[in-house]
Simulated assay, not measured.
Amino acid sequence: MKRLITVATGLLLTLHLQAQTLSEKVMQQTCDCVSELTSLQQLQDSLQDCTTKAMVAVMQAGTAEERETLGRVEGITGVFKDVKEQLPDYCYNMRRLVVEGKTKEFYKLSANSKANKHYDTGNQLMDRGDYPGAIKAFEKAVKLDRNFVYAIDHIAVAYRRQENFAEAVKYYQQSLEVFPEGNLAHLNIAVAYTFLNDYDNALKHYKQLAYLYQDDPEGYFGAGKIFMLQANYADALDNLFTAHRMYEKAGSAYKQDSEKLITIVYGELKNKGQLDLFMQKAKEFNIEIN
Rank of each mutant, 00 (worst) to 15 (best):
E65N: 02
K2R: 15
V265S: 12
R72A: 05
E85Y: 02
N147G: 00
D49W: 04
Y199I: 09
Y247T: 08
G71H: 03
G75V: 02
A236G: 14
R245P: 05
Y107S: 01
A243N: 05
V83C: 03
L240Y: 07
Y199P: 09
H205L: 07
T263H: 11
F165I: 05
E218Y: 07
R146D: 13
K260G: 07
K272D: 14
H118E: 03
A236T: 11
Y233C: 07
K260Q: 13
N201K: 12
F278C: 15
K255V: 08
Q86T: 05
D49F: 04
V149Q: 01
L11P: 12
K140V: 04
T69C: 05
Y150E: 10
A158V: 06
D82L: 02
A8S: 15
Y131S: 10
L11Q: 14
V142T: 11
V169R: 03
E68G: 04
P180M: 03
Y247C: 00
I226L: 09
N93S: 12
V34G: 00
K249L: 07
Y220H: 11
A115S: 05
M279D: 14
A151Q: 07
G222S: 06
T69W: 03
T121E: 12
Y206R: 01
L12E: 15
T21G: 13
V99K: 15
K204E: 09
H118W: 04
T242M: 06
T52C: 01
S39K: 07
A137R: 01
G133K: 10
V79T: 02
T263Q: 15
L17T: 14
G122R: 03
G219Y: 04
V149S: 01
Q174E: 13
I155G: 02
C50A: 00
H118N: 08
S258F: 13
A192L: 09
K270Q: 15
A223F: 08
Q174S: 08
N93Q: 14
Y150L: 09
L237R: 11
K140P: 06
G251K: 06
L47N: 03
S258G: 13
Y159L: 06
Q256R: 06
V149H: 08
